[in-house]
Design a protein around this nucleic acid. Structure first.
Lengths: 234, 234
DNA sequence: TTGTATTTAATTATATACAATTTGAAAGAG
DNA sequence: CTCTTTCAAATTGTATATAATTAAATACAA
């Protein structure tokens, strides 16, 4: 944690937004762990700004669901429980189904091309067995579909839900046995969008989430057991 | 606007939350109109607090989608365009369908009783022709269904989406010709949830939004035309 | 030893002060 | 008369100072 997250000062943004992005990233990558306290002075010193932009960033993280506020005690990184992740996934399943259905109606020729490229790129990434690259290719592919809906609000909501999953996604993608399945699912989704076959597309999208759900919930249980063991050994 | 919104200081809450609730309410009731600037000093003077809690409240309203930030210019009440409302309704339709489906699976006996009461209360409210009372009864009824899903995240998201519609909902409920239809739709939803008939329930929920959509979009067009006329006359 | 006050330190909540930027109006040039 | 430039006022962005609250440590009594 010594030389952990730092601010990307290059950006031409208000400090609160830079801080917001920095903290968000640190939470998603697990650099700031669930339950860890976010103390204003420490963060301010560490990032080299005053407390004001820190506080404003925390207010936004709060509504984003990444931190929990305890009155007069400050913010801490939100815990992920099996229940809360189930809630997220349940909503995400419905939204992803909606996304591909809308995409069937509205996707443009250019977006179809981009989607094809993204599918190919994902397949390449899987072959390379580079986990980080796979994750990035996956995000890109989904992003194209979500944006093809032309629905700004939906884009924002799906991004927020994905965020909650990213904290566990790495574990999921590390499971190489699932990679072929992922490639296959992506191909089905791509093809049914091209054919405007909403029914198949939305079924595939739901299945895609179902599979991730199993892996993520499994990982949450493993994490909890490890935590409990650690406490017992003290 | 002279003696408009005021703070409810009785609450035992941080000032930022009191300010947040106050501003939110003022936006939803239309007291603060779309496009109106939210200037920190003015609000601070008006509500009798310093700029800090005002700023923090605005950060939350921003993520909630009720205000738009313009860099170095501050916040203004978010405009509602036909497009943005369509986006909201598209998502809301899918979420409401999800809500009733989950409710079919998970609703408890007590919640079914409460739902029945809420349906009856709504019918009574319609008979009274008291618009405010009708709106409240409607909110209560939907709230029971949404909470019956047992999904916290879904509750939060649906509430946020409803919020966007409240700004236009009054116009909708003022249209007395639609009241019988509303009562009928509520009854269908109630009965299909009791029967655990997901298909019918989700169809009815979608239909319910479709009908509101027509009225709300119509109202948005009327508002825009009025605005354009007013500008022309200057 | 344990439980309870009391004090102290740490931290958040709020207010204020200062800096940077933008906007609009007035002044001046073409 | 119109366009540009400059300047002042208003407003946001950031930093710091003060107040209020909480958590922890210590002292003291049962």
């Amino acid at each position: 944690m010594q030389d952990g997250f730092q601010m990307n000062m290059n950006e031409f943004l208000p400090l609160r937004d830079v801080v917001f992005n920095t903290l968000r990233q640190a939470i998603l990558t697990g650099e700031l762990k669930p339950g860890e306290r976010l103390m204003e002075i420490h963060l301010a010193n560490r990032l080299g700004v005053s407390r004001t932009p820190i506080r404003e960033a925390i207010r936004k993280l709060e509504l984003e669901g990444l931190v929990t506020m305890i009155p007069r005690r400050g913010a801490e990184v939100a815990q992920i429980t099996e229940k809360s992740m189930n809630d997220v996934l349940e909503v995400r399943r419905a939204m992803d189904a909606l996304c591909v259905e809308l995409a069937c109606d509205r996707i443009t020729e250019e977006e179809i091309q981009a989607l094809k490229q993204a599918c190919d790129a994902f397949e390449e990434a899987v072959k390379s067995k580079d986990v980080k690259r796979i994750a990035q290719a996956d995000v890109k592919l989904h992003d194209i579909i979500v944006r093809a809906t032309g629905n700004q609000r939906l884009v924002q909501l799906v991004n927020n839900l994905s965020e909650q999953m990213y904290r566990y996604r790495f574990e999921y993608i590390k499971d190489f046995s699932q990679h072929e399945r992922l490639v296959e699912e992506h191909r089905i989704i791509y093809e049914s969008i091209v054919k405007k076959d909403k029914e198949t597309a939305s079924q595939a999208a739901r299945m895609h989430i179902d599979n991730q759900e199993k892996a993520i919930i499994h990982q949450i249980r493993v994490d909890r057991e490890n935590r409990e063991k650690r406490i017992k050994n003290l």
